[in-house]
Design a protein around this nucleic acid. Structure first.
Lengths: 410, 410
DNA sequence: AGCTTTTTCTCGACAGTCGAGAAAATTAAT
DNA sequence: ATTAATTTTCTCGACTGTCGAGAAAAAGCT
């Protein structure tokens, strides 16, 4: 949507431009910023002075690049300019992190969860209490906490607020904004974990390539199957989505899934599904809620030793994923796929099935199969995703719009 | 992507704002424009004067709204300010339309096509020649033709330029920009027909609702199956995509499709597929290239009289579509679906299958089934889609960026 | 101390928006 | 026939912002 443009808006945009540049590389001189943002030197001065008065950035001196000349002044984010908290909800642990404005982790709490059926209220109370402790321990005053970013697996509504379905709470829904905004004036957002992974991969790979990758998918293989997709159409900021890939129908009326539906991808490719197939348990048996990964590992060993049943369990999982990716590509176009999560250890076993499942579609036949790669260290990617999303949101929505009545003595 | 902002850019954006307002309702006064754009009166004056000098808009007087007072000056698009040509490629006819800057159709040519295998070169030459005649007959000088918008069914690459696969040319690819840009300096774009339909429906329904609809799908039922999806995320202009829905896998290793793959949705829901199912022809038989719609109509009559085989043919088609929509919703979220094309006549027969195919997915179970409706008059929707896309592109890319050395005597 | 080099900062010109109120063009009232 | 009222357009000066050029600053080198 086009909106009214005024001179003040220009300043806001150009402030954002400087903040983004600083986010890309912290500690840049006046001249660096001029080059990176494309702004005139005079404009850079005006903006950096403003930001300095508002205590957003600070200066340090550094010797000139060419050995002699006037020393450069490097601008850096003031670490105490703002804070953000991340909450990572996974099936067995809740991880709370506090980061400062420069994006450095300053405190972390981890809490084991018992997987017993918990009520939404108790769950919400736990999170509220833990966030309180996090702020206290890291000595962040509530008014300085500008954003709370939450990630979870499962089905996230696209208001970026409501968790519709999760393996832990089932279909008990929870609205994170309503839960947390009374306690904090920070902006609360909820994203699917795979969205953050995809987003982190997208920025890091785009930087490596030197230009934005038009599309990218991240597929997390674990107890559940999660997909994140990033689209970067020309001239607009990339947008990420985390669709309900794990519970997309693979085969109409097929195997029973943990979610209660029949034929979901997860009912073929989730860890419990692999177990079920390997032990010839009927596909209509209600699956176990949590399968230790060691069990899957055992089957993988058998498969690698040539066991036919074990091999076909992984192959079937691959076919479900391959078909799903073929459908994704039919709807979104060809894009590279990065596999993450603990399940990548079995990627080689699933690969034949994936290739077969992909090959069936016209799009793949015409444009060729997508590039596929694996990436370990999902935890780091989730953290980076949180960081990218939150810090750019703070820059864009809190810092760039000049707030009057600010600025004082450092 | 954020880019440098300057005062000139503001003007460009605000010019665009005025042009968009005029596109929404042609013939608005100074005051109207001020209200609709949110710009100050002084700014409106500045911009309208500029546009007038550049011969983009013209003024007519009208009595004041309240009976007395100074007469209003209504600004209207100057019809000769620019022209656009549309080419609609369908399996049996090529339709060429010329419209002026106000969006009024001023000339049209239709050419029957023989469905014999034609080479890409001959096909390209046909289009080039017809466009030449179109410009000549409508007395539009080549330099005034600012855009050529082409629509087709099949698989369109997302460079908006290349036709990757079509039922007519098969997998002989054709790059429309390369074909036409040497003759015309107009901007050439190729879009899937269903994308234009979806886009037209989106703007008209959004206007009816008073606010932009977040998502919408248009499903065209004909010889082939085409899907267009429109996304209107907050604060950005809506974007449309036309995925290869018809050739998305419905059932792995299933019925043989016209495209050569097995298991495509079209191989179950295309008109030839319904025929095949109704006559119990094996699903692996190579389908006929063109099926007269009368044949499908006959089967529909039988189905409505209770013939079981005929009924199940439509039901199966419905299931394929329903499953496909369930998958679409898994990946994109819930959205209303509008069915268009000649096949909507059989919508009632397919409906049970569609409902069944939809119900299988978790997303549908949680958020409920999507709203479904039908719309006849696909041809008008395609034309409106062409119009929306092209005219806003001309406004945004040609008119709004002030071109120096313009303006003269009308 | 003076010259060179590198970098930051300042100044005046220019482009654009905005609000207020003047000006214009008409009908209604006297 | 004037004058008043009304509606709408247009103009003026203040303000915000960007830009390029060149001044100023702060160092090393000779």
């Amino acid at each position: 949507m086009l909106t009214k443009s005024s001179t003040e808006l220009i300043r806001q945009q150009n402030r954002a431009l400087v903040l983004v540049a600083l986010r890309r590389r912290n500690g840049q001189s006046h001249t660096d910023l001029g080059i990176e943002t494309g702004l005139a030197s005079a404009t850079v001065t005006a903006i950096t002075q403003e930001l300095e008065n508002e205590n957003i950035i600070e200066r340090t001196v550094a010797p000139p690049a060419g050995g002699r000349g006037r020393p450069r002044i490097l601008f850096k984010q003031r670490r105490s300019a703002a804070y953000a908290a991340f909450v990572r909800i996974s099936s067995d642990v809740l991880q709370y992190s506090m980061v400062d404005y420069s994006g450095t982790l300053i405190y972390r709490i981890e809490e084991k969860r018992d997987n017993a059926g918990q009520t939404v209220e108790a769950f919400a109370a736990d999170i509220r209490a833990a966030l309180g402790r996090l702020a206290e321990k890291s000595r962040v005053s509530p008014s300085d906490l500008k954003a709370i970013s939450i990630s979870s697996k499962g089905l996230v509504a696209d208001d970026n607020t409501t968790l519709l379905w999760s393996s832990v709470l089932g279909s008990q829904q929870i609205n994170m904004r309503k839960t947390l905004e009374p306690d904090w004036q920070a902006k609360v957002t909820l994203n699917h974990e795979s969205l953050l992974v995809a987003s982190a991969l997208h920025t890091s790979l785009s930087r490596k390539e030197g230009k934005p990758i038009p599309r990218l998918a991240a597929l997390s293989l674990g107890h559940s199957i999660g997909l994140g997709v990033v689209h970067a159409d020309t001239y607009e900021s990339p947008r990420a989505r985390a669709p309900g890939f794990g519970h997309m129908i693979h085969s109409h009326g097929g195997a029973l899934c943990r979610c209660g539906s029949y034929g979901c991808i997860e009912a073929y490719a989730g860890s419990y599904a692999i177990l079920r197939a390997a032990f010839k348990v009927p596909a209509t048996t209600l699956p176990a809620n949590f399968v230790p990964f060691i069990e899957v590992e055992k089957i993988a060993v058998q498969a690698r030793q040539g066991d036919r049943l074990a091999k076909s369990a992984f192959r079937e999982a691959g076919t479900a994923i391959g078909n799903g990716l073929a459908r994704l590509i039919s709807l979104h176009g060809k894009m590279p796929v990065v596999f993450t999560g603990p399940g990548v250890r079995f990627f080689d076993l699933m690969r034949p099935g994936i290739d077969e499942g992909l090959s069936a579609s016209l799009g793949v036949q015409i444009e060729g199969p997508p590039e596929m790669s694996t990436s370990l260290d999902e935890e780091r990617l989730v953290f980076e995703g949180h960081l990218n999303h939150t810090m750019s949101a703070i820059d864009r929505d809190v810092i760039a719009p000049k707030i009057l009545g600010q600025g004082g003595t450092p």
